[in-house]
Design a binder for these strands. Sequence first.
DNA 1: GCATGATTTTAGCCATGGCTAAAAAAGATT
DNA 2: AATCTTTTTTAGCCATGGCTAAAATCATGC
Lengths: 147, 147
Amino acid sequence: MASTRPKPRKLSSAKLRSAAFRRVRADHQSELAQDYVELIADLIDERGEARGTDVALRLGVANATVVKALKRLQDQGLVSQEPYRAIFLTGDGWKLAEDGRRRHKIVERFLLALGVSAETARIDSEGIEHHVSRETLAAMAKFLTRN
Amino acid sequence: MASTRPKPRKLSSAKLRSAAFRRVRADHQSELAQDYVELIADLIDERGEARGTDVALRLGVANATVVKALKRLQDQGLVSQEPYRAIFLTGDGWKLAEDGRRRHKIVERFLLALGVSAETARIDSEGIEHHVSRETLAAMAKFLTRN
DNA sequence: GCATGATTTTAGCCATGGCTAAAAAAGATT
DNA sequence: AATCTTTTTTAGCCATGGCTAAAATCATGC
Ligand SMILES: [Mn+2]
Ligand SMILES: [Mn+2]
Ligand SMILES: [Mn+2]
Ligand SMILES: [Mn+2]
């Protein structure tokens, strides 16, 4: 049996800290996909279909940016589309969208319950939602039931 | 006088939504600088100086990544350094660091007060801090004084 | 059914933030 | 002082996410 390195009694402060930053970077990796599928799901529900142009308008980016991003999402198996046609979500895409909606809703309602304006809750939750762990989300949900 | 477009009675839903995404993108733009200067300030306070290597270790990225980022921060007037030497914060750098520390502390303590573990508060706050508006921060601070 | 106008995609640019491998500088050892 | 080891920087690669301008496609009116 190979000799094993002794397990450190305590995680070094540097290790601890880097874990947090790694998590943030991972969150940001999945953020774009999450926001896209959530938005696409909303458009499909509200208007029957999601067009690239509507996505661009609502994200506040150029059309070309959306086209490129959608290609990546298609490679990731989250959306399907043909040129000049509306965008569809795959099964995985819908799953991710639903999950995002659920988390987003909890965060936004939580901020409202905390006493901020509707405007601020809407805006801040758009960024915060991606950094809320399962544990924190549960704590927010609990707070909501008690208020 | 040129004719002016009539002011819309209500902001369109698309405009409203894109404003939130624009804010998130702006937050992410300033995030890296904020985390760097905060970390550098901590290192200076705790150990007397901040070395690039320590920054890399604590951020969990490669050394080369830090070297490049520090160059950008230098261009932005937030840090000053000479090759093979420790990193210093400029006046602006210290201001940004202090501001970041303050916000970070409030967010972390707020999560703790909400009932999540110390570990989770530490990790989640690292991402959330950058998306908390002045109004939400104030609401969190208020919650803290009442608990 | 074709011309023309509007929409959408493609092409290609840029900055950021990550990486590894090679080069250079600093620091230790003898 | 010269060498050898360790640390730090440089060079150069890649993916992402943004943009504008040009090309391609679609759709409409005639
Ligand atoms: Mn979001
Ligand atoms: Mn974020
Ligand atoms: Mn911070
Ligand atoms: Mn942070």
